[in-house]
Design a protein around this nucleic acid. Structure first.
Lengths: 150, 150
DNA sequence: ATAATAATGATAATCATTTTCATTTAGAAT
DNA sequence: ATTCTAAATGAAAATGATTATCATTATTAT
């Protein structure tokens, strides 16, 4: 935790950003959460410890953290975006999402083995050559119905 | 084209929906378009032939067509959804998307060979068993920069 | 401690999508 | 063909997530 926070401080300093209370509070919430929080959910969690926080500030800093490569922004099909730390001590680094179309629950999974990851790389290479694209990343989601919604 | 429209009429009839002018006009636009249109873009195209059309009607019918399995709804990261016919005579049936983060252009690709499709199926099986999910579909997108944005 | 300015937060604005509701229309029954 | 009725439409208002504005506050280099 401490270690993580320190890393954040450094990152921010290095990029010329100030290390403010709201930023630290938002960071803390993100790194203590496994789930995929919306901006408002993050706001509410931060609010408990730091009631001065404003929703605008949450949005602003999520965007900054996304640009810094600390946070990844997802969209799972309900009307709002979800955010999660790119490197979260609580979950595997490389993972994808399984979204229940019924209850909107999202499950992380990292069941891709080497074979699959290699294949992905192969596809990326083909794509980048054939379509003259510099591939920066990919998004893989599976949709379906979870046990209780089925 | 005729053939396609006839199919639509039948589908709608079978499900107890009426075959209205707006519906036919929207369908026509979708089946004559390769790209990935937003609701407003569809509205504007329909408007040219049928100026009585309202944006609300476009939204409503896209939703219906999505539920009927005729249309697929995508989100590529700008603020609006995009729609395309599930079976479009103008493009390959099974395909994914390559999104340019610079200019937001979207390219279809179907460079998955059998090997990759089988692998996907394998992953789906693993996931459905391990996480007790009934998998209904998947979303695969690659992000990057196209030639001109690079 | 102070000054310079980046960051914040309250509020208003924006913009895609939905809801409401009075009017129109498809299509079944006559 | 005309009539009838529920389904569909479209205009306008409402919603809800996100963004812009701007006066105030707080961080940090000095």
């Amino acid at each position: 935790m401490i270690h993580n926070t320190q890393k954040l401080l450094n990152k921010f300093h290095n990029m010329g950003f100030r290390v403010t209370k709201p930023r630290q509070a938002i960071w803390k919430v993100l790194s203590n959460t496994i789930g995929h929080l919306s901006a408002e959910e993050i706001y509410l969690k931060v609010y408990k410890k730091y009631p001065k926080i404003g929703l605008t500030t949450v949005y602003r800093n999520l965007e900054i953290m996304e640009k810094m490569g600390l946070v990844k922004k997802y969209y799972f099909g309900d009307g709002r975006h979800r955010y999660e730390l790119l490197q979260n001590p609580l979950k595997p680094n490389y993972h994808h999402h399984l979204v229940c179309t019924g209850c909107r629950r999202v499950i992380d999974f990292d069941d891709f083995d080497n074979e699959e990851i290699n294949l992905l790389k192969k596809v990326e290479k083909v794509l980048s050559q054939k379509h003259n694209f510099e591939i920066a990343g990919h998004l893989i989601q599976f949709y379906g119905f979870c046990k209780s919604c089925n």
